[in-house]
Design a protein around this nucleic acid. Structure first.
Lengths: 152, 152
DNA sequence: CTCACTGCAAATCGTTTGCATGGTT
DNA sequence: AACCATGCAAACGATTTGCAGTGAG
């Protein structure tokens, strides 16, 4: 935890940005909720618990900044809200997501399943792939169980 | 063209919706711009050329309806705008996209490259895949050429 | 003293909704 | 007459911006 903060601090200062208390509080919230997919509003409310004076605009500005530095990834699951996801240590690619159309839960897949596909795209369409976004829509294990009960 | 309109008309009436003049004009615009990825605003402006009385709200309502019927897919490339994409005839899956980070162009890939990956997700995570969204971010062929010129 | 950073409120932008009207059946 | 669909304007929610105040270097 602390060393990840330290790392982010260095990343910031290398581009002459400061890790202000507000920014640190925001980063800490993100670290404590790595599994979730928080919206800016979510982050704001959580940060407010630690630093009540913080403003929503600052949270937006911080998330924007972290996004530029590729510390977080900004995603969009189609509801009109942006969500922010800590990039895992050393991950060079965005991870994949499984979105359940029944309960709305979101699961992350860390493995990169797209190696082959990227190679195909690269050669067949002469497209130099830098990153990707992959989301599956479907029914999660839990909801499959529930609906099979209902239907029996 | 006409037979696709006819088909959509049938699809609508099978669920007791009507293909009103406004809806037809909207569908025609989408058909004439299959390659593009129009936002609701874009569609609105184009429809207005044919049917000046149409309101923006109607365009939104029509696109929403077509989206439910799976005639179009609603996508989001991360700028805060929804875009609407005609589903190809008989396609059961969403097609993939190549977004160029240099010039912003968007290219479509019709082939479904995810068959294997879906099988993996299905078995390994017990997730029943219904559909997917796959977007690659990178540099398109044209921009690769340009930047290699600049750098030489 | 300077300048990046902040909080607040107002502004913006895409999208949705309420409502009165018009057209079909 | 009942009802779906429309246009318009107002409402809405997420995000951005202008600006004056603050604090670290």
């Amino acid at each position: 935890m602390e060393n990840r903060i330290e790392k982010i601090k260095k990343q910031l200062s290398s581009q002459s940005y400061k890790l202000t208390p507000q920014r640190e509080a925001t980063v800490r919230v993100l670290l404590e909720h790595e599994e979730d997919h928080l919206s800016a509003e979510d982050v704001y409310l959580l940060v407010k618990e630690k630093a009540p004076e913080i403003g929503l605009a600052t949270v937006y500005r911080t998330l924007e900044l972290l996004s530029e530095l590729k510390v977080v990834d900004k995603i969009n699951f189609g509801d009109g809200v942006s969500r922010y996801d800590l990039r895992k240590e050393g991950a060079e690619h965005f991870h994949h997501h499984l979105v359940c159309v029944e309960c709305g839960s979101v699961k992350e897949i860390e493995e990169d399943l797209l190696g082959d596909v990227e190679a195909i795209v690269q050669t067949r369409w002469s497209f130099e792939v830098k990153d990707h976004r992959l989301t599956f829509h479907g029914v999660c294990e839990q909801c499959q169980t529930i609906s099979s009960k209902v239907n029996s």
